[in-house]
Each structure stands twice: as structure tokens, then as C-alpha cells.
């Protein structure tokens, strides 16, 4: 286990931003940390990045307490804040060179490491450009390059795609996949679940400073919506609904936009039996398809949209 958050509580004077939070991140994970604005994501991340001291509980990275051994934890972590700027009057390679030296890298190995980081982030062409003249997307990639420069074990990225256009978002997602393939552990936060759903293997959902759900995407979906959801279109939708209810294998049913949504148990043969019943009913079944729950509706269901 590369990182562990145990009963973390953070207070700003009388206000509790994070309350008894527990998380664990395995090596090689892409862990999505999701929650609405103000839920406590950035506060948790700042504690992990040694920028904030916990009020109670502890955070360990590679087995080391971040509060007691910040100097040992810092080289293991690559931190990218949600809002960041760049220094004036500095070229791209000088910017990366500065961070490489600050992290205590061997001077001889720095140029090759800079080239590598620029190549991964596709900034090779901007090597000699001044950082304050880069576009927003490029600055974002540069910050990621800076985060990678000292080869950290754990990348902590606080909303890395915020404020970017759709193309740049796709690029960042691709970049994260590449890094994951190279064996990096990534802890990434976002307030948009769909943004992370297809790249994360584990997800933690936080609301009002508390973790409301944690696991793989499938586990979270099943936890919220047990069984399968079938969408039925028919000529006589009322009759189809009556027959479905009479079959006693439907857990719940609802009409939505002229279609019938039927929830059934996720066991072998149940769906086939229901379809056979409906077809035999003579309600004129046009189509039956499985409906996957919308990620946003799932997220709203979990978080209720409240903030701490």
C-alpha cells in the first residue's frame, strides 16, 4: 500500500473541512477522488502533500507519517495543485531544471530527465519558450512535467483538467493512462465523475468532508443500483407493464419517455424469462435493451449536491 489516510480530521478554526476520513491507495492504482466543490478534496490532498497539518488522524505515504517525516515524504510525492501559476522570466527547460535541482537530483542526469518529461507531456517544441507565454493547456502540461521530473512514486493531482477545453481534457486523460502503464500510482481529484470513470480503477466519493462511497466503479454502481435495468419499448406499453408486474420477477417498474424501465435481479435466466413473458403477452414488444445508469445521476444520488 503506497498511501493510507486514517481517521483524518482537518479543521479551520471552528469549521471542520474533513471529518474522520479513511482511504487506502494501492501501488499502481489510479484512484479517483470525487466530490462536489467544497467537499474537502483539496484539504485532504494538501495534507497528503505535507502542506497542511491534520487536526486529528494521520496520513502515511510509503509507510511514513507525513506529519512526522515531511522531508522524507516530499521526494516520494509529485504534487500538482488545482490552481497554480508559473514564474516570470524563466524558460521551460529552466523551470524544469529548477525543480529537478530542488528535489536533489544528480546534475548529470537532469538534462535527460527534462527531455523525458517534455516528451511525455508533448512539450519538446517549447523547450526554449518562456513559461509565462504558454497557453493554459500547455502550462497545465508543464506543471505535470514538473510533477514528474523527480520520478515520484505517487502523483497527487488536484483537478488537473479543470479549465481546459474538451480536446485538452482528452489529452490529459491519455497522458494519465500512459503514466499508469509506466507503473505510476496516481491519486486524482475531480468534481466530475464521468471525467474519471473510464480511467480510474478505484474511486472514492467525498461529501461534506466524509467519504460516502469507495471501491471500483462496478462496486459503486451495484451498491447504489442493485440488479439490472431493462428498457422496454412496445406498441401497447400499458399492457406490457401489466404483464411485467404479473410475472413477479420484476423488482420495480417505471414509465419514462414512453418506455418501460424494469429492474430485475442480476441472476442467470431472469432476464430471458422476463423477455419471454413479455413477447408472449402480445403487447407488441419492439425492443428490449439493458440500461446502464448515468454516471452523473449516480454521483448526484451519492452526494445529494451538498457542500461542507
Amino acid at each position: 500500500m503506497i498511501a493510507r489516510v486514517e481517521n483524518l480530521t482537518v479543521k479551520y478554526d471552528d469549521f471542520t473541512a474533513v471529518s474522520e476520513l479513511n482511504l487506502s491507495i494501492e501501488e499502481g492504482d489510479i484512484y479517483g477522488f470525487i466530490g462536489p466543490n467544497g467537499a474537502g478534496k483539496t484539504t485532504t490532498i494538501r495534507v497528503m502533500a505535507t502542506l497542511l497539518l491534520p487536526f486529528a488522524g494521520k496520513v502515511t505515504i510509503a509507510g511514513m507519517d507525513v506529519e512526522r517525516y515531511p522531508e522524507k515524504v516530499k521526494p516520494l510525492v509529485g504534487y500538482m495543485p488545482d490552481f497554480f501559476g508559473v514564474y516570470d522570466n524563466l524558460k521551460v527547460w529552466e523551470y524544469l531544471d529548477f525543480f529537478a535541482r530542488v528535489y536533489g537530483m544528480e546534475p548529470a542526469g537532469i538534462p535527460s530527465k527534462i527531455n523525458e518529461a517534455l516528451e511525455i507531456t508533448k512539450l519538446e517544441g517549447k523547450r526554449e519558450a518562456y513559461v509565462d507565454f504558454l497557453s493554459r493547456g500547455m502550462k497545465q502540461r508543464l506543471c505535470l512535467a514538473k510533477t514528474l521530473i523527480h520520478d515520484p512514486k505517487l502523483l497527487i493531482l488536484d483537478e488537473p483538467a479543470s479549465g481546459l477545453d474538451p480536446n485538452a481534457r482528452v489529452e490529459i486523460r491519455e497522458l494519465l493512462r500512459t503514466l499508469s502503464r509506466e507503473g505510476k500510482t496516481i491519486f486524482i481529484s475531480s468534481h466530475i465523475l464521468s471525467e474519471l470513470a473510464d480511467i480510474c480503477n478505484r474511486v472514492g466519493i467525498i461529501e461534506v468532508g466524509k467519504l460516502v462511497s469507495e471501491g471500483t466503479m462496478d462496486q459503486i454502481t451495484k451498491q447504489l443500483q442493485p440488479g439490472r435495468l431493462l428498457k422496454v419499448r412496445a406498441r401497447d406499453i400499458e399492457a406490457a407493464a401489466r404483464f411485467a408486474a404479473a410475472s413477479r420477477i420484476v423488482l420495480s417498474s417505471e414509465m419514462k419517455e414512453g418506455c418501460l424501465l424494469l429492474r430485475i435481479e442480476d441472476t442467470d435466466g431472469v432476464a430471458e424469462r422476463l423477455i419471454k413473458t413479455l413477447v408472449d403477452s402480445g403487447a407488441g414488444i419492439l425492443s428490449v435493451s439493458e440500461e446502464k445508469p448515468g454516471l452523473e445521476s449516480l454521483f448526484q444520488k451519492l452526494t445529494r449536491g451538498t457542500v461542507s
Partner: peptide, 15 residues
Amino acid sequence: REQKTLDMLLATPLS
């Protein structure tokens, strides 16, 4: 602080 670079600097191993 204004350029929002302080956090990145404080997260480095420099004391």
C-alpha cells in the same frame, strides 16, 4: 502567493 506558485515551492524538500 499572487502567482499561485507558493504551494508548489512549499511542497518541495526545501525547508
